[in-house]
Design a protein around this nucleic acid. Structure first.
Length: 551
RNA sequence: GGCCAGUUGGUCAAGCGGCUAAGACGUCGCCCUCUCACGGCGAAAACAGGGGUUCGAUUCCCCUACUGGCUGCCA
């Protein structure tokens, strides 16, 4: 068999060579920073455009982003669209937007209307000729051959193998027929328009390969012996072939991907070896899990809304909270670091692969809530306002309008209990903020809770009348509270809750009930921030009006 | 079936041959308190099972069990 002739027959349109490609995509010229222990890392994410971006994508993206940017390297986006059956229109921009929303920024790669960077195109289907250049080379070396097995034939072989309990796949005797076709036979089949795929010639062996995984340590497994597919019948590569060619040409130093790829590692290693290339450092991450009953299971797209990144956007979970939460799952020492450095930017934390957990982490929404409250409580009022407003613009127009109309009041309200070492943690998501803050706006104000039992209609009326007479809006917090205490006594309530606890029959209630009346009148709820602060955010007129309604 | 990963409290996790087996979230109790929140103190709660190796195993080795993945012209 003349492999050169075969290569020409299969790829007549390919005129480029391996060397051309190496020249077109040269080694990256990265700064060799002396303050960095290692070389600058080049990493990427390679989502397929299915229209569904999930937490796992972000999880891996964060690792890749940190690795690259911490080392002064490059982080890029490559669209792995080799399966045209799965592609959903508009999916590429969904990926880009989701990543942007969560603050994942790329240095190069696919952008909405094309490419940005010198190593493109960054959409695999547009790189067809690049893969075929290498495919042609493999054919020339006698390492790849056209296979005319139809999908029906392949599945018949699989059934047979299943029955005989043999390894499944095309190898050994199952590959013989197509491997040994003569040039004339091949010409004839192609002439008749028969479809073919390009297969790699695996070799039967009993070898083991060992790969060092940066997260898991040494991985050992049998060497590949399958005649796996390099190019599908449409001339587009499979994931395996595309991965090897792209990550070599785009000069990735690290490949971060889910553990479901571990089993195909022998294929990838085989290809890197065949081309004589050094393989990147592999980092296989754990699958995100979910608790069901008392066992863990993989997060499922259909059953678990929290798997989709869009869930976090719609719920208005701050992007910083999602990052911190993921960072906590990712790096066991992040949480400690955060406690020691409550006000530092999470980018100052130095992320390491060594500290990564390799078992499947559960997505714990309770923990996320806690993280989220902390993150928001650390922001200053203006930042909270901005981020909340941004979210409202997209998901809650009514509040976007309210926030615009009452910007000053809103910021003043957000300042209540904020700042200092131990800020209030009232807001957990932007969605929930809309509820929590509603009483500051007359448009949304409503009485949710009832007046305490201890205070009947008459008492409420009399109390508020006296309250309006006695209280001066200009009283400071201390003076105001002094007057409240006096009123409490005047109405026969206990100033100290303890006194009332000790002897309930001696009082109508305690100051707790009195302040609760005020809370309900002013905010509609018995759970609200400091009364004096709220009064002053609302302003004299509004506060008076809300109280007068009860008189 | 074959191959490969993983397995410390309810959850996330530290641990890398010797510890009363950290910490965080959650749960519960008490204290503080104008509610909530915050804060403080405290409680319950774990090394999947069995063999080795060793003076000594959560830690190293083997087996079993369980969970998950791969075994596609899907990624």
């Amino acid at each position: 068999m003349d492999y050169k002739e075969l290569a020409e027959l299969l790829f007549p349109h390919i005129v480029t060579t391996r060397e051309d490609m190496e020249k077109r995509f040269p080694e990256r010229d990265l700064p060799n920073r002396a303050d960095l222990p290692n070389r600058a890392n080049v990493t990427r994410i390679g989502p397929s455009p299915t229209g569904f971006v999930h937490l796992g994508n972000l999880y891996n993206a964060i690792i890749a982003e940190r690795l690259a940017h911490q080392s002064g390297g490059v982080f890029y986006l490559r669209i792995e669209d080799t399966d045209n059956k799965r592609e959903v229109p508009g999916a590429v921009s969904t990926v880009i937007q989701s990543m942007a929303y969560f603050g994942v920024n790329f240095d190069e790669g696919a952008v909405a209307d094309g490419d940005h960077g010198a190593y493109g195109p960054y959409r695999q289907r547009q790189r067809k000729d690049i893969y075929q250049t290498f495919a042609k080379w493999l054919v020339q070396q006698g390492k790849a051959y056209p296979c005319f097995l139809s999908e029906e034939e392949v599945s018949a072989i699989r059934d047979e193998q299943n029955e005989k309990k043999e390894d499944i796949g095309i190898y050994g005797k199952y590959a013989e027929k197509n491997r040994n076709l003569t040039m004339d036979e091949i010409k004839e089949k192609i002439g008749c328009g028969e479809k073919w795929v390009l297969r790699f010639k695996g070799s039967l062996n009993s070898d083991y390969i060992a790969v060092e995984d940066a997260i898991r340590g040494k991985l050992e497994m049998p060497r590949n012996f399958h005649d796996f597919i390099l190019l599908k019948s449409d001339g587009i590569p499979t994931y395996h072939f595309a991965h090897v060619v792209d990550d070599h040409l785009m000069r990735s130093t690290h490949v971060i991907r889910g553990e479901e790829w571990i089993p195909s590692l022998p294929i990838h290693i085989e290809l890197f070896n065949e081309f004589g290339w050094e393989h990147p450092i592999y980092c296989h991450t754990a699958t995100l899990m979910k608790l069901e009953g008392n066992s863990k299971r993989k997060l499922s797209k259909r059953k678990d809304p929290e798997l989709a990144l869009s869930f976090y956007q719609e719920e208005g979970i701050s992007q910083d909270a999602v990052w911190e939460f993921l960072l906590m799952i990712l790096n066991s020492n992040f949480e400690e670091w955060r406690i020691a450095n409550p006000f530092s930017d999470y980018r100052e934390f130095s992320f390491t692969l060594e500290k990564m957990s390799n078992s499947g982490a559960l997505v714990d929404l309770d923990k996320l809530r806690d993280v989220s409250k902390n993150v928001i409580s650390r922001m200053d009022a203006n930042e909270v306002y901005e981020k909340w407003f941004q979210w409202c613009c997209k998901y809650n127009e009514e509040y976007a309008a309210l926030l615009t109309k009452y910007k000053d009041r809103t910021i003043a309200a957000l300042k209540v209990g904020r700042g200092g070492e131990k800020p209030r943690r009232d807001i957990e998501t932007w969605k929930q903020a809309c509820q929590f803050m509603s009483f500051y706006y007359d448009e949304k104000f409503e009485i949710v809770d009832t007046m305490p039992e201890e205070c009947d209609e008459n008492l409420v009326r009399d109390f508020f009348k006296r309250y309006l007479e006695r209280i001066d809006y200009n009283d400071d917090s201390t003076a105001w509270f002094q007057k409240v205490k006096e009123l409490t006594e005047e109405f026969g309530f206990a100033v100290k809750p303890k006194d009332y606890k000790k002897d309930p029959s001696a009082y109508k209630g305690s100051i707790v009930h009195v302040t609760n009346m005020l809370r309900v009148a002013l905010t509609g709820r018995s759970n609200a921030p400091d009364i004096w602060d709220v009064t002053h955010v609302l302003g004299e007129e509004m506060a008076k009006e809300r109280i007068s309604k009860w008189c």
